[in-house]
């Protein structure tokens, strides 16, 4: 489904701020893989997802999604393959537009925008049904501006938008980090449900080790711009937080587990 080969990306090359963010990263995903990604601050998790979505071109390497080489494609040309939910709940929606208008924009992901009416009656009924499954009462606020919603509601909506038109890969970058624990748990549960119901291939970055162990069929750990640990299936199921932490200090060459990894134990 996805093959990223030997990806390199350096920010601010040639300056004092030079930062090798991706350093020979290799990643292969099978169809239906649901991968939890962990790693310390600055490990390159977000950078990997950004490289995949084409926020900027990579320095070297190759990215193939479902047989299509997208390495040279710009961000909006890769959108047909990808559904994305960002860490910041403000990032995934247009605040001054209605809930239904946001959904209609997402429904047409990757399609040419024509002079046809932006939202049809039939769609409206469909959105109402889908919003009802979120169980947040949004189905009765279809014409409300998204800016009026809470962070959790916006994030749930973004999740729905990202999967409205089935993506080849769903990218979740700490999409529950900005939410309070209860809402975060709810959004995470919802993500799990949407992914399994639709058999989606997904990448989910999280700082919560327990979540990383609990969700998905595969777990990868990143450090210094590449993957240092990759487990699947049974082996993943048997992981514990302690085991992961031990693994981390071992594989990162004795580097101390940083605060944030510990905090979210």
């Amino acid at each position: 489904m996805l093959k990223m080969t030997n990806i390199h990306k350096t920010f601010n090359a040639g300056t004092v701020n030079e930062k090798k963010a991706l350093n020979g990263l290799d990643l292969t995903l099978e169809k239906g893989d649901f991968v939890a990604i962990i790693g310390g601050n600055g490990a390159g998790k977000s950078t990997m997802l950004n490289a995949l979505s084409g926020v900027w071109p990579v320095d070297s390497g190759k990215i193939v999604i479902d047989g299509v080489d997208v390495t040279a494609k710009s961000e909006h040309r890769r959108a047909p393959y990808l559904g994305r939910v960002f860490q910041d709940p403000m990032m995934g929606t247009a605040a001054n537009m209605e809930i239904q208008e946001n959904l209609a924009l997402a429904m047409r992901r990757g399609q040419r925008r024509t002079l046809r009416w932006g939202i049809s009656e039939k769609e409206r009924a469909q959105y109402k049904e889908l919003l009802a499954t979120l169980d947040l009462g949004l189905e009765n606020r279809m014409t409300s501006k998204v800016g009026l919603l809470s962070g959790g509601q916006r994030q749930a909506l973004t999740l729905l938008m990202a999967t409205l038109k089935q993506p080849k890969i769903l990218l979740l970058d700490e999409h529950t980090a900005a939410l309070d624990p209860k809402t975060a748990a709810k959004v995470l549960e919802l993500s799990d449900k949407i992914i399994s119901d639709n058999g989606l291939t997904a990448l989910m970055v999280t700082h919560n080790m327990k979540d990383a162990i609990k969700h998905g069929n595969r777990l990868i750990m990143m450090n210094n711009g590449h993957i240092i640990f990759d487990v699947k299936g049974e082996e993943k199921k048997n992981l514990t937080v302690d085991l992961l932490l031990r693994k981390f200090s071992e594989l990162s060459g004795g580097e101390l587990v940083n605060d944030r990894m510990l905090l979210s134990k």
Partner: peptide
């Protein structure tokens, strides 16, 4: 950002 993510 959102608009580009929708392929526009």
């Amino acid at each position: 950002q959102m608009v580009r993510a929708q392929g526009i």
